[in-house]
């Protein structure tokens, strides 16, 4: 029933789709992770003008389907002089869309750090960037790894939408195989398994990172976090 011969003949299409899905998702997620951090810091550090703007951006990301964003970029872009190839439009779309979600995840992480620590660091004259790099990020990492892993998985799955704006990703090539061979089960099941493989890899990576952070972290133990809380209360 399951025709492996057919899959072997179609290996070119499958591998091309896998490669495209992987590199576009990888770069798109990197953009999303980086831009998300910038957005979260902006939202928290400048409450007057930039903060609300960033908050609106996040609302937009969470309220508009990725498909609409991709169409805006790919089909709408040229009318304002923005000509992107399908792959790049997909990459940018995933990056911009994911950034909104990551910004919220990071914000949760930032807010979990006791205010007293930041005040103490500022008192000691540590620069803003160093506070971010040495105090905030190491502590929030442990907290944000699980939801970030989740979000990465969601983005990889949503990347199937790129097929609609004609990127030769796994989903598009599966449909191409269906159209060519009239076999429906083999291509879609294979592609489903490949997505699952990518996602399982990310999930495992997330667990491993989580474990490592838990071992290595110098997160305050319950007793020391009590003192941190006490300092905060008296300050």
């Amino acid at each position: 029933m399951f025709d492996f011969q057919l899959l072997f003949e179609m290996r070119g299409l499958i591998l091309q789709g896998l490669w495209n899905t992987v590199w576009i998702c990888f770069l798109g997620c990197l953009v999303a992770l980086g831009l998300g951090l910038v957005l979260a810091s902006l939202r928290l550090s400048s409450p007057r003008l930039v903060g609300p703007l960033v908050a609106t951006y996040i609302e937009l990301c969470r309220g508009i389907p990725l498909l609409v964003i991709l169409f805006l970029l790919y089909y709408g872009g040229p009318s304002i002089g923005l000509r992107l190839s399908a792959e790049i439009a997909g990459l940018v779309g995933i990056g911009l869309y994911g950034a909104g979600y990551f910004a919220e995840i990071y914000r949760g992480g930032f807010l979990s750090i006791p205010q007293g620590q930041l005040e103490a660091a500022r008192m000691l004259g540590i620069s803003r960037l160093n506070i971010l790099r040495r105090i905030q990020i190491p502590q929030m990492l442990q907290l944000i790894v699980p939801p970030s892993t989740n979000q990465l998985i969601i983005l990889v799955k949503e990347s199937a939408l790129l097929s609609v704006i004609s990127v030769d990703d796994l989903t598009k090539n599966a449909t191409a195989m269906v159209n060519e061979t009239f076999a429906v089960i083999e291509p879609y099941i294979t592609v489903a398994l490949l997505y699952w493989l990518i996602i399982e890899t990310i999930a495992r990576g997330g667990y491993a990172l989580e474990k490592r952070l838990a071992q290595r972290s110098r997160m305050p133990t319950p007793s020391s976090s009590d003192t941190a809380g006490a300092t905060h209360a008296t300050s």
Binding site: L60, I64, V68, F71, L72, G76, G77, S79, I80
Partner: peptide, 27 residues
């Protein structure tokens, strides 16, 4: 929206309208 975009040749405006409608419902 796709149909409107292909008829009016104004994809940017059309998809922006669609985006706003989705956003309105979600909010």
């Amino acid at each position: 929206s796709e149909q409107i975009a292909s008829r009016t040749f104004q994809p940017l405006e059309t998809y922006l309208v669609a985006a706003l409608l989705y956003l309105a419902v979600n909010l």
